[in-house]
Write a protein that binds this DNA or RNA. Sequence first.
RNA 1: GGCCCGUUCGUCUAGGGGUUAGGACAUGAGAUUUUCAUUCUUAAAACAGGGGUUCGAUUCCCCUACGGGCUACCA
Length: 509
Amino acid sequence: MSDKKVRVRFAPSPTGGLHLGGVRTVLFNYLFAKKHQGDFVLRIEDTDQSRYVKGAEEYILECLNWCGLVPDESPVVGGHYAPYRQSERKAIYREYAERLVMQGHAYYAFDTPEELERNRKEIPNFQYGHAYRNSLRNSLSLSQTEVDQLLAAGVPHVIRIKMPENEHIHFTDMIRGQVSFDTNLSDDKVLLKADGMPTYHLAVVVDDYLMKITHAFRGEEWLPSAPVHLLLWEYLGWKADMPEWAHLPLILKPDGYGKLSKRDGARLGFPVYAMSWFDEKTGELTPGFRELGFLPEAFLNLLAMLGWNDGTDNEIFTIDELVEKFSIKRVSHSGAKFDFEKAKWYNAEWIKRMPAARLKGDVISALQNKGLTVTDNDYLVKVIDLVKERCVMLTDFYHQLSFFFEQPKVYDIAAVKPKWNDVKIAFFKAFITLLNSTDTLAEAHDMEQAFKQLAEEKEIKAGELMLPLRVMLVGGKFGPHVFDIATLLGKSETIERIEKAIIAFSAAE
RNA sequence: GGCCCGUUCGUCUAGGGGUUAGGACAUGAGAUUUUCAUUCUUAAAACAGGGGUUCGAUUCCCCUACGGGCUACCA
């Protein structure tokens, strides 16, 4: 690594939601930058106006904000090399594209999309490259005067790179090592489109150079076009400043094969986006990890472990630990199938480890989504502590703790009724009297002792009374230790619930 | 089709010329918990195949198979 300050970038295209692979790429960029005290830059690839989706840019920023992967320089906060939206840099790309034409490394091509389409249909394995470029309409095959006339007439055209013949391009990928390509096999990629926008190939090179990017991480799907980028760095005379490359393995479908796509989420019932994404064009809502109740810490953690590990058995890492331990050398070479079960496990682990006080805010909003507003924060923290180990998602908290705030609306009668009788009614009435007569049962342990002692006096097995008591307080067969619930609920609330339940149980058929 | 990248339990992976091939998720069994969950113990489960190199290959090399990616005026 050179002594230049590390700068990495992520360049999302605002054409839809931010999916798992995208967030992981950001994460690895971020980890690398932070590890080397460098900068993480966000630039927006809005060069394909036909696919640009309104609101997507804000959405991406919000996603990254939720994850805590905030860029040091972005279209919003600004930076040394603004603008960071490619659509605002059109003139820059044009300048370099023209320079390549002047130098003979690129050329104007006037072929219409229809002509190219016809060629692809009629000629097997047609490629716009050295084999055919001289028989097509471009500044290589046409005379200078013809080209000047076409240009002057404003005939739509693109600028294509002129791929060299019989050259082998090789470079070192930080993950894969030496990779090589034969230039004869690649076609003359379009660099500048007819609408004046650059393609990814031109933009990524020009921007990385101008923005002084030192390390470029991107998905493996970009590996085949790496030689085009290498050539551009060379032709533009910037080879010494070329970033080091790392092509990240892909995240694959959990069943079957192939790259994970938005459709898979809907089909298999798990999210593929960090946050819910509403596509205005299709009116389609694709749910996200955030809305499903994932903690950002868990989300980042599970993403990091998809294709990376620190060489130990440790699987739970905070973002700071990831920054410290991260090494691009330890990123695996092969794609990873996404496993939602494991993802949920990460979240459950994180909920268990997270102090209740820090969970509070997220829990409050999860409850609010279900229509439950909580005002007593101290009480809520105690309750969270009691139930968090049985929650996998933040959304589980509602079911696990709503009974602390609302009396049961329905009871699991089936669990109680078969063994419900007058003896038990008498017992619970006696228990109420007991509770009323003393102030010393504030501790769960004391209350449990008193309860059992009373059961003994009445000659009833305590075990047969525990379940009814639970259903009285909770409504069903779930939740933490029943006396923990009772003491937290408080004496009067406990008594009230028992009284109501006695009536309900007896009335039920 | 062509090119590129890859291949260790069902899944994520560790390991790496000599190992009882380790861990985690999921699954099975058991213990704890007078609910459910947690927790703990435990079981079953893998080096794609074939050739080399080597005293020895899961590890290195080659081939095949399989998988993935790319092959657009998409990124």
